[in-house]
Amino acid sequence: MDVVSSLVTLFRHSVLRGDARETACPDDQYKPEKKMTIRGLRRLYRTCVGLGLAATALVLPTLPAQAAGDLLVAPTRVVLDGRRGAEVILNNIGSETATYRISLELRRMTTEGRLVDVSPEEANELERAATEMVRYAPRRVTLPPNQPQAIRLGIRTPQNLADGEYRVHLLFRAVPKAVPVTQQDQEAKGFSIALTPIYGVTIPVIIRQGKLTATAAIANARIEEGAEGKTFAFDLSRTGNRSTYGEIRVVKQGHDEPLLMVRGIAVYPEVNGRKVSLPVPAEVAAQLKGPLSIEYYEPQNIGGGLIAKTDLVLR
């Protein structure tokens, strides 16, 4: 049972990561269970199910064919301080051996909430410092199908590093195989076109130096009509010297279940606020009026505390 043993190895990794996480986020209220509680078991189960996805492909003899270069990355966000490193798991979930390249990218948030690519020449002082601090390995890895690989991350903080939040985005992508140039029949007129997509994932790697704080506020909720249908939009502002990150819940007064929920909304320090725009499914559109509250919570794994909340009446 190679599958199980490799998963157990992975599980051990995540336990180690659990340790690292505790100290990596001094300002987070993450409290590990001291004993194996029911909640711990449930977490464990979820972790295993997550990691088990890879194994599923091995166990199931018939799977739909997948393209070379498919990938899984976990976790989707890394926060580091000066003392401990972290690991990110990269798994080849395609059906063929693939080579992946891991690189550091710079992205800047706009007030629209988009992350735009920043070339190394355009990098400001903070971004250059972040790029120079982050150490990671391996940078290129060839993986057979369903083979996970841990990418180790660490930082080397220079002396007298100014307090603040530094950030890079780690890009995982497959290196395309060299496609043999298929010669069309020389007789035929015309041309052939091969546009090969290289697809990948970027996750933020955040470095926090010093004691940092941030608060957020919500304002100007409105319904917008876009090309893709209705969206529920509002302005999420931020003050302080670090980013805020969490999930948005739009709750109708008197109801428990949120009408709209979206996870992983960040406001990075380069902006004082951003627009958040949530697509409104048709079945929710009719209910989205009257007294509502918009709530911004930290993720469950770092405490789940309320960051900001606004009550409003939508007409």
Binding site: S14, R21, P32, R43, T47, G50, A74, T76, I89
Partner: peptide
């Protein structure tokens, strides 16, 4: 005994 939830993206 501890585990960290690894949120994944594919």
């Amino acid at each position: 005994a501890r585990a960290n939830i690894l949120e994944e993206l594919t």
